[in-house]
Write a protein that binds this DNA or RNA. Structure first.
Lengths: 243, 243
DNA sequence: CGGATGCTTGAAGCTGCTCAAGTGAAGTGG
DNA sequence: CCACTTCACTTGAGCAGCTTCAAGCATCCG
C-alpha cells in the first residue's frame, strides 16, 4: 500500500534514515534529483515534536498549509454530518501521508485526530509545488502519490458484505502496522471498535459479532485491541468473497 | 460539480467556444497564461469524431495516454471483479473529465464505455505535464482539478440509506445534465436502471421500488428513462436525511 | 470498592436482497 | 400488419443480514 510498493528499492549508499520505509520516500528522493535540489528538499522537511493522543492535527475549515507524513503513531481522519453522526474516512499509520483532502479548496475538509501519540514530517505545500516546478520528476511523483492515495480510498468502499469488509480490514491493517522486517501477524489496533465500525460503515455490534465469527472459523484471535491473524490466506479468501 | 463552480466566470472578450461551460475550462484557460502558452495549450487539444454508443474509450490495463473531457454524450466507468460482477464507478457527462484513474500506475484501472454517442476533447498527458512545468498556475490547476474530481467521488459513497442515495442521485444527475441556460427539471437518463443501481450499490429491484416510493411522495415523475423532478427541495431534504 | 468506559451478547425488527412472475415497449419475421 | 420474441423494468413474497435497543461483562482508574 506504500507509494513505492511497485518500484524496486533504491540503493542510496550512505543515505539511510527513517524515511527509508516511508510513503514519502519516492517523493523525498525522486530519481533525477541532483545534489543541490536534494539539499533543497531536505531543508523543507520539518519534524514535529511528539503530538499527544487526543489532540487534533487539523480541523475542518483550517487553512491548507502542508502535507504530513506519519513517522510514528496513528491519526484518524473523519467528518461529522449535520446530524452529529461521526464518519471515519480512514486511518493514517507509520509511513503514510495525509493532508491531500485540502488541495482543492485550500481548506481542510475533514478533521485529523491523533489516536496514538505521533511524530510527523511536515512539508509546506508551497515549497513542494515550487520545487516540483524546477524538477520534472518531482512533479510527476507528487501527482502519482496523490492519485495513489485516492485510489486506495476508493478500493475500500466496495458494496460487499460486512464480513468481507472486516476480513479485508484486518489483513490490510496488519500489513500496514507490521514493521518492515517483522514476520508475525500479531499487532495491536490503534483505534476503537467504534472507529473501525464507522470506517467500515457497520454498527459496532455487528463488528463485534463478525470478529467473533471469524474467530470461530479459526482465522483470527482477538483480545481487546490485541489481534493475531491465525490464517491470513483464509481471511484473504473471505475478503475476496470466496466461500 | 464543475471544476470552476466556485470561481467567477472569466471575461475573455472574443474567445468563446464550447469550452466555456466545460469542466476543463480553468485547466484550458488558466489565469496567468500568456498568449504564446495559450496558443501552445490550444494546439494540444484534439477533438474526436463522434464515438458510437456501445464502444469502449479505454479498458483496464490500457496504457495511460491522455485526459479526456466530454463535449457531448455519456460515458460510464466501471470494473468487473473476479466473480464477474460489474461495479459502476461513475458517469461522465457533458463538461466532465475522465482518465485520472490511470495517473498513478500509468495504466487504466477501469473500463470506459460509451453509453450515449460522444464527442470528446483529448489532451495528451505528456503535453499537459510539460506545459505545467513552464506555467506555475497551470500546474496548480491540474492538481486542483484532480483533487476535486476525487473528492466528489468520495462524497457520493456515504453509508446512508438507499432512499437518500437515490434522491441524491436524481438531484445530482439533474444538475449535471441540465443545459447551462435551462431552467427545467426534466431530463432523460443516459443509463439503464441496472447501471444506476450498481453505481448506488443497491439492487435494480430496490431502485425500482424506491423510484416508485419517491413518485408516491409527489417528488418525482419517472417514465422509463424520462424523469421530471417535481419537488427538488423535497428530494434534497430526503437526500440529506431530513425526515 | 465504585463508577466509567468500551466491548460483547441477546432478541426483535426493518431494510434491502433474491427469486420469480408479470408487464409493457420495441423490434423481428412471417 | 400482427403475432412472437426480446429486453428492460416493475411488482410481489419470503428471507437474510444488519441495525437497534437493551442488558451483561470486563477492564481501567479514581
Amino acid at each position: 500500500m506504500h507509494a513505492h510498493a511497485h518500484t524496486s528499492p533504491l540503493q542510496l549508499g550512505g543515505v539511510r534514515s527513517a524515511c527509508e520505509y516511508c510513503a514519502l520516500f519516492e517523493l523525498c528522493w525522486p530519481r533525477g534529483l541532483d545534489a543541490s535540489n536534494l539539499q533543497r528538499l531536505q531543508s523543507m522537511v520539518r519534524h514535529t515534536d511528539v503530538l499527544p493522543c487526543g489532540s487534533h492535527l487539523f480541523r475542518v475549515g483550517d487553512e491548507f498549509t502542508a502535507i504530513y507524513a506519519v513517522r510514528s503513531g496513528c491519526i484518524k481522519s473523519y467528518t461529522v454530518d449535520r446530524g452529529g453522526h461521526e464518519f471515519v474516512h480512514g486511518f493514517h499509520l507509520r509511513g503514510e501521508m495525509l493532508g491531500f483532502d485540502a488541495v482543492y479548496p485550500d481548506r481542510h475538509c475533514c478533521n485529523a485526530l491523533i489516536l496514538e501519540s505521533c511524530s510527523l514530517c511536515v512539508i509546506p505545500y508551497r515549497d513542494i509545488t515550487r520545487l516540483s516546478q524546477d524538477v520534472p520528476s518531482m512533479q510527476r511523483q507528487l501527482i502519482r502519490v496523490m492519485s495513489h492515495e485516492f485510489a486506495t480510498q476508493l478500493r475500500n468502499r466496495g458494496g460487499y458484505g460486512a464480513t468481507q469488509r472486516v476480513a479485508a480490514f484486518l489483513v490490510n491493517i496488519c500489513s500496514r502496522l507490521r514493521q518492515p522486517d517483522s514476520t508475525t501477524d500479531v499487532f495491536r489496533l490503534p483505534m476503537s471498535r467504534e472507529d473501525i465500525a464507522s470506517y467500515l460503515s457497520i454498527s459496532p455490534e455487528t463488528l463485534s459479532r463478525l470478529l467473533a465469527k471469524l474467530h470461530g472459523l479459526g482465522l483470527v484471535d482477538v483480545d481487546r485491541r490485541n489481534v493475531r491473524l491465525v490464517d491470513v490466506t483464509g481471511l484473504d479468501q473471505i475478503a475476496q468473497g470466496i466461500h
